[in-house]
Design a protein around this nucleic acid. Structure first.
Lengths: 210, 210
DNA sequence: GTCTATACAAGGATAGAC
DNA sequence: GTCTATCCTTGTATAGAC
């Protein structure tokens, strides 16, 4: 840890920033605290990143990369098992209680909340969520191969939105992870089931009663 | 508007606070801006509410009352129609694009986001969401009378969480209201359908394929 | 009750030495 | 590149006149 290079320090600053954001929120990020966490002076932060806004952008980039890493991990030995399971696992990634994951979820949540008031944040967010939705739609397509594209997208949107909502409640602490996972599993099963049913034979109307 | 009483001013301050929060967020609320919006001096705000924290509590109380009002409105002439419709309507209340509703949704969203970092906010939030979930579970119970309580609650939790997530995306502006409504309608139909099916005849396993 | 003026604190940002 | 010391703005809160 000691005898760090300049590059070490820059990344140390960004990692500290992510940590502080996860702890106090984007809007609660104080350069001083961040510097303390990283073990450097405030001035050094400004030296490397210019101003608060740029620091923030870099930090969010870091968080994005991290998410990539734990998301698109290598397929792993037991990859080709159950397709439904694969979908579930992808969605459940957001609920692993590892510090890094929790940190990332917290930051994304803050980002979403902040975007309500700061339009600049929206574009990146919109892109990320579009990509995520498409990925999930793809997985759903393998579960229910015959389903029309539009319905896949709809289901994917519902599931990803659900994950976001559950994640918020989890982070608030009003919803235990275990329960969140259970609720999500049931939702996945329901969506997949509905796609499957709509798929085969007669085009069942969406509303099956009354 | 002119010749206002003291009471008028107090409520004017709170309404202005709600407006500013909806515009800048709880954490972006500045006493000065608020006072300007309300057409009074900063000092008067402190005179009536003591400090920022107390002002905030009063404002949130106001928002809560408003939500009550537009939520538990009188049954209306066409009350006894379709039960499913009733449930849908209840959930869709959050998406009416009236200024007051939008303001309230924004503030609740901020509250949820803020609660991740400020534990004091959690209790009130937890209670409100519990009540809401129970209400929705009740409505679901009338749609699928035979369904066991636990499943009703689960479905209600998913639906309310979904509404919260959709609401956030709507307020961010990445999801048009119309689409949000559509997604929600489909989810309601799916949940109700699943409850209905699990209800009658053989206890179908949740996962109906493979 | 309501205002104007001001004290006081926190936090973002910079200057200048090393 | 990195630090210490400092500036300056902004925002909360109070004093005191009316």
């Amino acid at each position: 840890m000691r005898d760090r290079t300049t590059r070490d320090r820059k990344t140390a600053i960004l990692e500290a920033a992510a940590r502080v954001i996860a702890q106090r929120g984007v809007r609660g990020l104080r350069i001083e605290q961040l510097a303390g966490e990283a073990g450097v002076s405030k001035a050094l932060v400004y030296y490397h990143f210019g101003d608060r806004a740029r620091l923030l952008r870099h930090t969010l980039a870091l968080v994005g990369e991290r998410a990539e890493r734990y998301t698109r991990g290598p397929a792993g030995p037991d990859a080709g098992r159950d397709r439904l399971r694969e979908l579930e696992d992808r969605l459940l990634l957001e609920f692993r209680d590892a510090p890094a994951v929790r940190e990332n979820s917290t930051v994304w949540g803050e980002l979403r909340a902040g975007a309500v008031f700061e339009p600049e944040l929206r574009e990146g967010l919109a892109r990320a969520s579009r990509e995520w939705t498409e990925e999930v739609a793809g997985l759903l397509g393998r579960v229910a191969p015959g389903a029309p594209h539009e319905r896949l997208t709809g289901a994917a949107e519902r599931l990803t939105v659900l994950v976001e909502g559950l994640s918020t409640r989890w982070l608030i602490g009003v919803l235990p992870v275990g329960h969140a996972v259970e609720l999500l599993r049931e939702a996945v099963a329901a969506e997949a089931g509905a796609l499957r049913r709509a798929d085969d034979a007669t085009p069942t109307p969406l509303c099956v009663f009354d």
